[in-house]
């Protein structure tokens, strides 16, 4: 592996649910420190793609390489891979029976065997950074959606992942809470964390992405820097999609 080889590579990734072909040969290469935004109509497979990368769903064909190593091969320890990849889902998936602090330290303590005191010290540092230090002992249903989602980001960051996957993490939020979560992501982008995010927030994608990839019918139809893709999409499909989005007032 050389330094300039991509961090994450998807080659011909196929995935179907029953008869339904959801991913139909996804090719994607993501460099270190890149922020890739996946856009596309609802149902085009963005969530499925992210879940496959985190090995939460098995793929049918193709391969996914992390640091040049195929993580979809037989015999790869999926738990090991998942520890190197963080993921945050659309709806808050903090564990409701645990305090924020316990949620955030569960992974390091159980999966990585970090001692409790150490895990909690690390957690408090991160919670502090994300403005959640005073919520550490609260339970998820006692804090706002935005705070939940920020806590979920902290939880995903605890293992110091190589790549962070974010699946429409603001779409379940009240509009006034979207900003606080997006600014957290912006901060992570500035720190150079490699991220792949599925989003409907085109403004945000334009702002934070290094590359925007448009998914259509289970393939990456086109990928380009945001300025280029939003201003001058090459494909008719992309244009149509962007036009619809801008009519809906989301651009």
């Amino acid at each position: 592996m050389t330094d300039d080889s991509p961090k994450l590579v998807l080659e011909g990734v196929h995935k179907s649910f029953g008869d339904k072909q959801v991913l139909n040969g996804i090719d994607l290469a993501i460099d270190d420190h890149e922020v890739v935004c996946l856009i596309g109509p609802s149902g085009c497979g963005k969530s499925t793609l992210l879940r496959c990368v985190d090995l939460l769903d098995p793929i049918d064909a193709g391969s996914i390489l992390l640091d040049g190593v195929d993580i979809t091969r037989k015999g790869v320890d999926a738990n090991e891979v998942r520890r190197r990849i963080g993921i945050v889902f659309q709806s808050f998936n903090l564990f409701p029976h645990m305090s924020v602090l316990d949620n955030v330290t569960l992974g390091p303590r159980r999966a990585l065997g970090v001692r409790k005191a150490e895990a909690e010290a690390n957690a408090m540092e991160l919670l502090e950074r994300f403005g959640l230090a005073d919520k550490a002992d609260e339970y998820p249903n006692r804090i706002s959606g935005g705070q939940n989602q920020r806590a979920a980001v902290v939880r995903a960051l605890m293992g110091d992942p190589d790549v962070l996957l974010l699946d429409e993490i603001t779409s379940a939020l009240d509009p006034e809470l979207v900003g606080e979560v997006l600014s957290v992501i912006r901060g992570l982008a500035e720190r150079g964390l490699t991220m792949v995010l599925a989003t409907h927030e085109m403004g945000f994608a334009r702002d934070v992405a290094t590359t925007v990839s448009f998914l259509h019918e289970g393939r990456v139809l086109e990928s380009a820097p945001p300025a280029e893709l939003f201003a001058d999409p090459r494909f008719e499909r992309t244009q149509q999609f962007l036009r619809r989005v801008s009519e809906a007032g989301r651009l």
Partner: peptide, 28 residues
């Protein structure tokens, strides 16, 4: 189901996910 996904995503084994994330909620 998303609770199980979340737990697995943290790198917990299937058993750990049950033990720490799923069963406490299930029993409740």
């Amino acid at each position: 189901e998303s609770q199980r996904s979340s737990a697995r995503a943290l790198g917990l084994t299937q058993w750990q996910a049950l033990r720490f994330a799923i069963l406490p909620q299930a029993v409740r």
